[in-house]
Design a protein around this nucleic acid. Structure first.
Lengths: 122, 122
DNA sequence: TGGTATAGTATAAAAAAAGATACTGTGGAA
DNA sequence: TTCCACAGTATCTTTTTTTATACTATACCA
C-alpha cells in the first residue's frame, strides 16, 4: 500500500480554488452551453443567456479564458467575429459539472421530501 | 439502450443550485473540517478557522443546517454547548468535494506549467 | 442617407457578501 | 469581586459582485 492516501487536509485544500473558477452567477451556464453546443459566437451566447449584460458576459468569458478553460478566437473581419469554445483542458471540468448537476437534481428532491414530511408531522 | 441519457440541459441545470450550497468563503473549509474531525463544538470550529468572525461562522453553519448538510445539537447547559456534525445526507457531498480538491490541485500545476512555457517561449 | 449587426468598452449605481466591533447571560475559577 | 469561556446577536462599515445605461467603429443593406 502506498502512502498517498487521498484525504483532504483542510489546511491545504484546493476546493476553494476549483470553486473560484466555477463561481460567478453565469459561469456554469456558459460552460454548459459551450459543452453542449460547441463553438459559439459572442452574440449567440448572449442570446442563449437571457438577462446577462454584455459586460458580464465579457467578464466571465475573460476569466474562463484566463484559466485556460475556454478559447477565444478572433477573426479579423468587420463586423467583428469572435468564437468561443471549450479547450481540451477545459473538458476536464465536465465530470465535476455533471456530478454537481446530478447532486443538485437530487437535492431539490431531497428538500421537497423533507418539507412534505415536516408538513405532515404537524 | 434506455433513454435517460445524462446530458445536462443548460436550461434546467442544477449545477448552480449545488454550487449555491458550497459557495461562501468558508463553507468548503467548514465541511472539510467536520468531515475530517467529526463532531465539533462551535468554538472548536472557530479556532480551526483563523480569521473567521463569529457572525460568519454562525451564518454559514445555519445555511448548511438549512440544507440538511449539517446537524446542530444544543445541550441545555450553562455555559452553552452546541455541537455540529455532518448529517448522513451531507456525506453525499464528499465525492464532489473530493473531485474538486483533486481538480483544484491539478489546476494549480496546470497553470504553473503554462506560465513556465510562456516564459521560456519569449 | 439612415438603420442594423457585430463585439465589445466606460461609467455609475445598486445589491449582495463579508468584516469589524460591541454587546448579551450565566456558571465557575482565581 | 472580577474575569473567563461559551455560543451566540445586533449594528455598522467596507468590499465585492452584479446590473444598468450609454457609447465605440465599421461594413452592409435598403
Amino acid at each position: 500500500m502506498d502512502n498517498h492516501n487521498e484525504e483532504i487536509v483542510p489546511e491545504m485544500c484546493k476546493v476553494t480554488d476549483a470553486l473560484g473558477i466555477l463561481v460567478g452567477k453565469w459561469k456554469p451556464v456558459i460552460l454548459l452551453h459551450l459543452l453542449k453546443n460547441g463553438t459559439q459566437r459572442f452574440n449567440e451566447l448572449k442570446r442563449s443567456l437571457p438577462g446577462i449584460t454584455q459586460k458580464m458576459l465579457t467578464n466571465q468569458l475573460r476569466e474562463l479564458e484566463e484559466e485556460d478553460i475556454i478559447e477565444r478566437k478572433v477573426y479579423a473581419q468587420v463586423p467583428p467575429k469572435v468564437e468561443y469554445s471549450i479547450t481540451d483542458y477545459g473538458t476536464s471540468l465536465e465530470p465535476i459539472l455533471h456530478a454537481m448537476h446530478v447532486w443538485g437534481t437530487n437535492h431539490t428532491i431531497h428538500k421537497q421530501t423533507k418539507r412534505n414530511n415536516q408538513a405532515e408531522a404537524k
